[in-house]
Amino acid sequence: MSEPKETTLHQRILSDIEGRIVSGEWPPGYRIPFEVELTKQYDCSRMTVNKALTQLVKAGLIERRKKSGSFVMQPQAQAAVLEIHDIKAEVQSLNLAYSYKVAKRVRRKAQAQDRQMLDLQQNSSLIEVICTHYAGSKPFCLEKRLINLQTVPEAADEDFEETAPGPWLLSLVPWSAAEHKIFAVGVDQEEGAMLSIPEATACLVIERRTWNKSGPVTHVRFVYPGNRHALYARFTPETVK
């Protein structure tokens, strides 16, 4: 069965605009065509164009200015850049044996909280995966992940028993934007049990969302026991002009 016309056009608009921005054809500050112009160019509804532009805003590629239009974003200066690391490689760098165990893997409809975390539509479906990564015999971190089936339909047939969700996604789905949130929590009873630590133990939490040109890809929450993990980032100062 072929995709609906509006869905196909939505993907095409995303791909076209993202390609022009990434290639440098549309540099920072460039005003992209108004919605009405894009509607005529792609022979589609204004809602389809608006949806595509909204995703580009959330991916950090464009910004909207009231009464002025949409513009390619200026690059953001970052104090430090967090790479998406392979947990297996992290554990092996400690000269410890790596393993992981899937505690839960289920396909379900997105609930209100899921839609907020992944910016999903009302009737979206997703895959929820919960697993524990081990360094030797001790839990190294807990992973709670949501995968958007609209963007990654292949996840519906993957059980993640052989390959963890993170490296599986990185090998299959290129991402164009990522957002990290880092904070500390006192772990609750359920998560503490999965990490073999007492309730309220201080833990480092890293939450990440990724997108590609088709939309949201995944939301993941990593919980690390605070006394077993440190976060490092190397960066250089901006050139003084």
Rank of each mutant, 00 (worst) to 15 (best):
V102W: 08
Y134D: 07
M117I: 04
R145F: 00
N148M: 00
E154D: 14
Q111M: 08
A135M: 08
V152Q: 05
A112N: 04
S99G: 11
Y98K: 03
S124M: 03
Q122S: 07
L149S: 12
L149G: 13
E154W: 09
G136S: 09
P139Q: 10
T151P: 04
L126C: 02
E158D: 02
Q116F: 10
A110E: 06
I147L: 14
K101P: 04
Q122T: 02
V91E: 03
V129R: 05
L126P: 02
Y134L: 01
S125C: 05
Q116K: 13
T132V: 15
A112G: 05
Q113I: 06
S124R: 05
E158R: 03
S137T: 13
L96D: 02
V152P: 03
D119G: 06
T151S: 10
Q122D: 07
R105Q: 12
V91W: 07
P153R: 00
F140N: 02
C141D: 15
K144T: 11
V106Y: 12
C141R: 15
D159T: 15
K109N: 10
S93P: 09
Q92D: 04
L94F: 08
C131K: 04
Y134Q: 02
S125Y: 13
L149I: 12
Q92T: 13
P139K: 15
Q122R: 09
L120I: 05
N95T: 00
H133P: 03
A112V: 14
S124D: 07
I147F: 05
Y98I: 05
K109G: 11
F140Q: 05
N148L: 01
K101A: 14
T151K: 02
L126R: 06
H133D: 14
M117T: 01
I130V: 14
L146H: 05
Q113C: 00
E154Y: 05
S93Q: 15
M117A: 14
Q113L: 12
